[in-house]
Computed example of a mutant assay.
Amino acid sequence: MTIRVVLVDDQAMVRTGLRMVLAAEGDIEVVGEAADGAAGVRVVTELRPDVVLLDVRMPGTDGLEAARQILAAELPTRAIVLTTFDEDEYVAAALRAGVSGFLLKVAPPEDLVGAVRTVAAGQGLLDPAVTLRVIERYAAAPAADPARAAALAGLTERETDVLSLVAAGHSNAEIAARLYLGEATVKTHVSRILLKLGLRDRVQAVAFAYESGLVTPGGR
């Protein structure tokens, strides 16, 4: 299947560069572009791509607000935020908006391609340059969300352990090694966790773990 992508960035040269990188891949097609968030929402609503790449800072409607509107419309589109800014507040806002990925523009082309494929496949990602630092800060609230904390009761003890390790940034293989489980078993646990908690992907699972109080900055 071809992954259909829309680019939203106020800099034409950036869009051209992104298009060139993605167009070189046989399984990815850039089907539309927009120079600001409002236009991006219109283009995505019309074309319904698999993935939209959104810059954070744009005149008028920025990328975060555009992401909120796109995701609220329940389109079959997953969002990746692209930015030159790695401050925690941008990552926090992007993930709380419901995006599936956060990638710095300085990332190498192969990371961009990999991000598009990963998100199109229904998974989530954070740029490796910010993952560990942000995981401990972006979703940490002054107090746990009572509704989210209560939802944890629906998980088994093993599922709770797996969610804690997902929130710590571990891959399925690493979780399998830590819990002495098969990797396929861990994958099944992750799928059940997402289903029970009504989450879309691992990125949302990280947010949930912190906002529910299951995991706290600096420890479990």
Results as ranks from 00 to 15, higher is better:
residue 93 A to H: 13
residue 95 L to W: 03
residue 96 R to M: 00
residue 97 A to Y: 04
residue 97 A to G: 05
residue 98 G to W: 07
residue 98 G to L: 01
residue 98 G to T: 03
residue 99 V to Q: 00
residue 100 S to F: 04
residue 100 S to W: 06
residue 100 S to H: 08
residue 102 F to T: 13
residue 103 L to Q: 02
residue 104 L to M: 13
residue 104 L to D: 06
residue 105 K to R: 10
residue 105 K to M: 10
residue 105 K to E: 09
residue 106 V to L: 07
residue 106 V to W: 00
residue 106 V to Q: 13
residue 106 V to F: 07
residue 107 A to T: 09
residue 107 A to M: 11
residue 107 A to G: 14
residue 108 P to H: 06
residue 108 P to W: 10
residue 108 P to T: 06
residue 109 P to G: 08
residue 110 E to C: 03
residue 110 E to L: 08
residue 113 V to M: 09
residue 114 G to R: 01
residue 116 V to G: 13
residue 116 V to E: 14
residue 117 R to N: 05
residue 117 R to G: 11
residue 118 T to N: 12
residue 118 T to I: 06
residue 120 A to L: 05
residue 121 A to I: 01
residue 123 Q to A: 15
residue 125 L to D: 08
residue 125 L to H: 14
residue 127 D to H: 03
residue 128 P to T: 10
residue 129 A to W: 04
residue 129 A to F: 04
residue 131 T to L: 15
residue 131 T to N: 08
residue 131 T to K: 15
residue 132 L to A: 12
residue 132 L to Y: 12
residue 133 R to C: 11
residue 133 R to T: 15
residue 135 I to W: 01
residue 135 I to Q: 01
residue 136 E to Y: 03
residue 136 E to C: 02
residue 136 E to Q: 11
residue 136 E to L: 00
residue 138 Y to I: 00
residue 139 A to Y: 00
residue 139 A to Q: 00
residue 140 A to N: 03
residue 141 A to V: 10
residue 141 A to Y: 08
residue 141 A to P: 12
residue 142 P to S: 07
residue 143 A to V: 15
residue 143 A to T: 15
residue 143 A to L: 15
residue 143 A to E: 15
residue 144 A to M: 09
residue 144 A to P: 13
residue 145 D to K: 04
residue 145 D to S: 14
residue 147 A to F: 05
residue 147 A to T: 07
residue 148 R to V: 00
residue 148 R to F: 08
residue 148 R to E: 03
residue 148 R to H: 01
residue 149 A to F: 02
residue 149 A to K: 10
residue 150 A to D: 07
residue 150 A to I: 01
residue 151 A to T: 10
residue 153 A to Q: 14
residue 153 A to Y: 09
residue 153 A to W: 03
residue 154 G to E: 12
residue 155 L to I: 02
residue 156 T to G: 10
residue 156 T to M: 05
residue 156 T to S: 14
residue 157 E to D: 13
residue 157 E to K: 09
residue 157 E to S: 07
residue 157 E to G: 08
residue 158 R to T: 13
residue 159 E to T: 07
residue 160 T to G: 11
residue 160 T to Q: 14
residue 161 D to R: 12
residue 163 L to W: 05
residue 165 L to M: 15
residue 166 V to T: 06
residue 166 V to S: 05
residue 168 A to Y: 00
residue 168 A to L: 06
residue 168 A to G: 09
residue 168 A to M: 05
residue 169 G to K: 02
residue 169 G to F: 08
residue 171 S to R: 15
residue 172 N to Q: 09
residue 172 N to Y: 04
residue 173 A to G: 08
